[in-house]
Each structure stands twice: as C-alpha cells, then as structure tokens.
C-alpha cells in the first residue's frame, strides 16, 4: 500500500477522534437551543467554569481566596485536603445544577417572551460574568487536571497497524476514552429524552413550549433541567480538553471549534452534533494533510468554516436540523 495512503488513514482516524471532541462541545449548544431556542454563547465558558470547579474541589482549593485574604488579612489558599475524582465530579455537577438554577432564576425568567437576539445577548453577558467569577473563585493560573484518564499512544493499535502496514498508527488513549464517553453520553441523552417523564416533557417544550405549558409542563423546571444537562456536557468537555492542555482560561475558546459543527450538523439535533463533529474533524485533518503544506499550513480553522458554509448552501438547516416552514 502506498505510504501516503497509510498516512492518510492515520490522519482519517485522528480526524474522527478530534471530531468527537468537537462534538462534545457542540452537544451543550444543541441541548439548550433545542429546548429553549437560545444560542448559548456561554457554553465554552461553562466548560471552563466546570473544569475550574472540578480541579478546585479536587485540590481542596479555597474559593474566592484572594478576596477573603484581602478582606480579612488571612493567608488561606487550600483547605488541606484533596477530594477523589469521582466525588469531585459529583460535587461539580451539583455546582452546575446550582448554576443552571441561578441562570434561570436571575436571568432568563425575566426575559421570557423576548426576541432570540436579546436572549443571545444575555448569554454573552453570562459568558463574561462566568469567566470573571471563575477567575475570582479559582484564580487564573494553569491547573493540572488528573482524573486518571490515560494519555499517550495506544500501544495495541500501534502494534497491530505496524503488523499490517509496517507503520504503527498513532491514536491517543485520551481520544479513545473521549469517544467512549461521547458514545455513552449520547446514548444516555437519547434514552433520557425518549423514556423518562422529564425527557418527554423536555421534548414537548422543544416542540412547542406554549402547548407544553398548557398541559401542565413546568417551563421553569425544564429550562433548569436543560441548563443542568448542558452543564454536565460542559463538564465532560472541560475534563477532556482540560486533560490535554491543563485547565486554563483559553479553554473557553473551544466553543469556536463547535460552531462549524453546529452549522453543519444543525442546531437542534444531537446525532447532528456527533455526525457534524466527525465530518469537520475528518475534513479539516485530511485537508491539512493533503493541501496544508502547499497552502502554508494552518488550514484547519478556516477550512472547518468553509466546509460548514458549503453544507449550509445546500442545507441551510444543517444536515439534521429541522426545516422551518413559515406560512404567510
């Protein structure tokens, strides 16, 4: 087999894995948009906030230590204990539910019936607010996130592919874990939406929130539920991305990776987020591999958007999005 074809296969597989990571971020956007029509600009910051909270809890860091120390003249930074990863994840999830409640109670409850652009602007404000609160709570330093996820080359795949092609493929163990987690997450979300009372109520609100309201579904509860689920997805994305680079404020920029995925997959489809992520991941990696050197490299960022735009021309609602027909 030609060497370049073997390399392309490796790039293809790594593109799939990268796509899964993009999809993890996109999922949070989809959940909220589907249920409330809000494009949540703060989704990337939520991933950052969740990851910061997780590391802070694990390390026993005192939240708002700088403010406490400046106000009371103390020198507190750590409680002196550490919290096991699983328990810390549960506590962080509690924090994200609390955040969802606060967002609903103090922001969106007051904006019911407003234009989508107003709601979108509110999420921009929320993003900056959360970033600031995250900084005040946990500090701006880069934090190492160690929840026991494996990293580095997968030896088995390396050996097997070497046996087949005489060249061992590089697949990162972390990417394999991310794929597994994404599969479980999507399955869980689909089962939740299909087979639980709350899930059905969520879908009813997504279809027509006024009709859902008329049959006794609590809009408040559903929105808190949806924001909590988006918070959970943000936590998962924060863990996966944070494990790669440490938890730092640039984590919020991962949202940029989700936008072309959403444009391609549709803003209202969970499978769309996954398929869109995979197409974007594979597309940008293969393009970089094939034409990057001729074009000076670093094509991935812009190519993802070009790819999404091409899809938009033919399917404005995205691959899996709902086609909106408005009659005059």
């Amino acid at each position: 087999m030609p060497e370049q074809l073997i390399f392309a296969m490796e790039v293809f597989l790594n593109g799939l894995m990268a796509g899964v990571l993009y999809a993890l971020v996109a999922l949070g956007f989809v959940l909220i948009f589907k249920a409330s029509g809000i494009f949540n600009f703060a989704q990337g910051v939520m991933a950052l906030f969740a990851a910061l909270t997780l590391v802070g809890i694990m390390n026993g860091q005192v939240p708002f230590a700088h403010i406490i120390n400046a106000t009371f003249g103390t020198d507190l930074h750590y409680f002196g204990w550490t919290v096991p990863g699983l328990l810390a994840i549960l506590l962080t999830m509690g924090m994200m539910v609390l955040l969802a409640w606060c967002v609903q109670r103090f922001v969106f409850r007051h904006l019911v019936g407003q234009e989508p652009i107003i709601l979108f602007m509110a999420t921009i404000g929320l993003a900056y607010f959360l970033e600031g609160v995250g900084d005040l709570m946990w500090g701006s330093d880069i934090k190492t996130l160690d929840v026991g996820l494996p990293q580095g080359i997968n030896e088995t795949i390396d050996e097997v592919t070497f046996g087949w092609f005489g060249y061992g493929f590089f697949i990162d163990n972390l990417d394999l874990v991310a794929t597994l987690v994404a599969a479980i997450l999507v399955t869980g979300l689909v089962l939740f939406a299909q087979y639980t009372k709350q899930g059905r109520a969520m879908r009813a609100v997504a279809d027509d929130h006024q009709a859902a309201l008329s049959v006794g579904v609590s809009l408040n509860f559903i929105w808190i539920l949806v924001w909590s689920l988006a918070g959970f997805v943000a936590l998962v994305a924060g863990i996966m991305w944070g494990a790669k680079s440490g938890v730092q404020f640039s984590l919020s920029l991962i949202a940029l990776k989700a936008l072309p995925v959403l444009m391609l997959g549709g803003f209202t489809s969970i499978p769309g987020a996954i398929v869109g992520g995979l197409i974007i991941g594979v597309g940008e990696k293969l393009f970089e591999f094939a034409l990057g050197p001729a074009l000076g490299g670093a094509t991935e960022n812009w190519f993802a958007y070009v790819l999404a735009l091409i899809f938009l021309v033919f399917r404005p609602q995205g691959l899996f999005g709902e086609k909106i027909i408005e009659r005059v």
Binding site: F7, E10, V11, N14, M17, A18, F170, D172, W241, K244, S245, S250, L251, L253, I254, K257, K285, E288, F289, G292, G296, G297, A298, E300, N301
Partner: peptide, 21 residues
C-alpha cells in the same frame, strides 16, 4: 520544515502527526 499552529493552539494533532512521520 515549517509547521504553523492556528490561534489559540488547543488542537495540534495534524502538526504532531507530521512530526511523527
């Protein structure tokens, strides 16, 4: 050989696969 990484640089798989090759 020149390997540019786009801002912010959270995703560098392509560059490091090329280095590996």
């Amino acid at each position: 050989s020149l390997l540019p990484v786009d801002h912010p640089g959270q995703e560098q798989k392509s560059q490091w696969l090329q280095i590996r090759r």
